[in-house]
């Protein structure tokens, strides 16, 4: 465990806490893409299949349980909670995210480290995580105004993978045979997708103005 990875995990945890805070305090999910939350639930379930088979550390196990349970809880809230579900932007959140699932599944069947069920699922989850934010970014551009908590949620979600890239660079130089191209390439693509969001987020922060994404 190195400081970059720990910072990345904490940033990821903060993004989830910010989202839960928004939904819990405002009892609203306006501006939140249910499709992105569903994709993240799939990402965590397919990536942490080894949750019950391999024990790595208490930290690892606890974080996996937190990520799986929080993502499922958020999807449940937006779908089923009698108050929250009313504020879901159903007509704006129209990204065909199952296409992303299909494309990542095909890619995982072609590009993986080992052809085993767990490895293919792992590669699938890495690819899917890279594009999972797309429905959310599209929704933000369509809805125009971004409320603070939603903006912070997306910001932390993007920042966490950037810390992971530093972690991979660090591990590449500090461990002999650490070469994991699937995660690295996918992580760079994932962070790049946030580039324009980060730009507008920084501008709005600098001008102390409301975050506006060009439609």
């Amino acid at each position: 465990m190195n400081v970059f990875r720990f910072a990345g995990d904490m940033t990821h945890l903060i993004s989830i806490l910010v989202l839960l805070l928004k939904i819990y305090t405002t009892k609203s999910c306006s501006g939140i893409s249910l499709k992105t939350q569903e994709l993240y639930a799939v990402v965590f379930v397919t990536r942490y299949l080894d949750l019950v088979t391999d024990f790595i550390s208490v930290y690892n196990t606890v974080m996996k349980v937190v990520f799986i349970s929080s993502s499922l809880a958020i999807v449940w809230c937006i779908r089923r909670h009698k108050v929250v579900r009313r504020s879901y932007d159903k007509e704006l959140d129209t990204f065909r995210h199952w296409l992303l699932v299909g494309a990542c599944a095909v890619l995982a069947l072609v590009v993986h480290e080992k052809f085993s069920f767990q490895e293919v699922c792992w590669a699938f989850s890495i690819y899917l995580e890279a594009v999972a934010i797309l429905p959310q970014l599209v929704l933000l551009q369509r809805s125009g105004n971004v409320d603070n908590l939603t903006g912070q949620y997306v910001f932390f979600l993007g920042a966490y993978r950037a810390f992971y890239i530093l972690n991979w660079i660090y591990r590449y130089y500090s461990e002999q045979h650490f070469t994991r191209w699937i995660s690295c390439v996918s992580g760079i693509v994932q962070t790049a997708l946030y580039a324009d969001f980060f730009y507008y987020y920084f501008i709005s922060w600098k001008n102390n103005s409301k975050l506006q994404l060009p439609a």
Binding site: D50, D54, I56, M63, Y164, N167, E175, S183
Partner: peptide, 10 residues
């Protein structure tokens, strides 16, 4: 040599 696999990452 225990190769710390990436699977120890979240």
């Amino acid at each position: 040599l225990l190769e710390e696999s990436i699977k120890d990452e979240l």
